[in-house]
Design a protein around this nucleic acid. Structure first.
Lengths: 144, 144
DNA sequence: AAAGAATATATTGCGCACAATATAATTGCG
DNA sequence: CGCAATTATATTGTGCGCAATATATTCTTT
């Protein structure tokens, strides 16, 4: 068998598999907060800086409007955010946390810790792995 | 702002983002073969060992029947595989490559090379990154 | 000021990914 | 043997993720 087509020789399959495992790791924890992992990511962005355009959230997370629009509408339905057209530029939709959305942050404080418990690795090793991953990531994305 | 909720301090976000970038990298290449990345993964498994149960493919790729059944039906429609109930145990569906599916392998030989061109990293570094990722992966999955 | 280009978001359609449930076949136990 | 438990796949429903396209607004150029 051609070596290059063996699953065990693939680099990308572990990346794909790990990403799935990671979101599975978050699932039970985030379900308690009635959130999905992508919704949680959007909130991480908003907790850091509120009142953003859809496109600004998209840039941060590499997600387009086809993904974000329905996701944001679901967050709106849960009254975690507000979507409002910008009066200065009616093309723009600004996303603002509601008070409920802002308060949710306190409940989310414990999430990273719970996740890290599953990673039974030293902080240094985590740093090294993260560096490896982000290096590959910046390389791929810079190539476009 | 609480440091632990900063996006830039997350380990899992780069993993999530990298997995998306990777499938985006495969997309134009696999589109030429009329395949998606998960379909390609199924074929990697079958090219290595043919005539597998749905569950055996699922174990290999960590995918359940909810994902695989429709995916395999699409591969069947493209006449790349055959789905047939096992006569010994009618609960089991065996997946076999068609001659077209077997021939597709030749056209796929070039895929890993094209992908690796996008990773402008030395083989040693790729190996190290892969090790880091698979280590985390086995750790998480062994914890269940 | 009007027409056309550019921009921002929304919509549609398709294919995963996974939980929950359903269906059908097989096995095991009394 | 007969029936409950188990096993294997299928179905349903929800939520991404992304390409392609649509719609609406703003900017540009003349």
């Amino acid at each position: 068998m051609a070596e290059n087509l063996k699953l065990s020789n693939q680099l990308c399959f572990p990346i794909y598999a790990l990403a799935k495992e990671v979101t599975n790791l978050y699932r039970p924890i985030l379900t308690e907060l009635d959130l999905t992992y992508p919704q949680y990511l959007v909130l991480l962005v908003l907790w850091e800086k509120d009142d953003l355009k859809v496109s600004e959230i998209g840039e941060r997370l590499s997600l387009d409007s086809g993904t974000l629009t329905p996701l944001l509408k679901r967050l709106e339905q849960k009254q975690i955010i507000e979507r409002k057209r910008d009066s200065d530029d009616e093309r723009v939709v600004k996303i603002k946390l509601t008070s409920k959305g802002a308060r949710l942050k306190e409940n989310a404080e414990c999430v990273p810790g719970k996740i890290m418990e599953s990673f039974d690795i030293s902080p240094e090793n985590i740093g090294a792995i993260k560096k490896g991953i982000t290096d590959v990531l910046t390389q791929i994305t810079s190539k476009k």
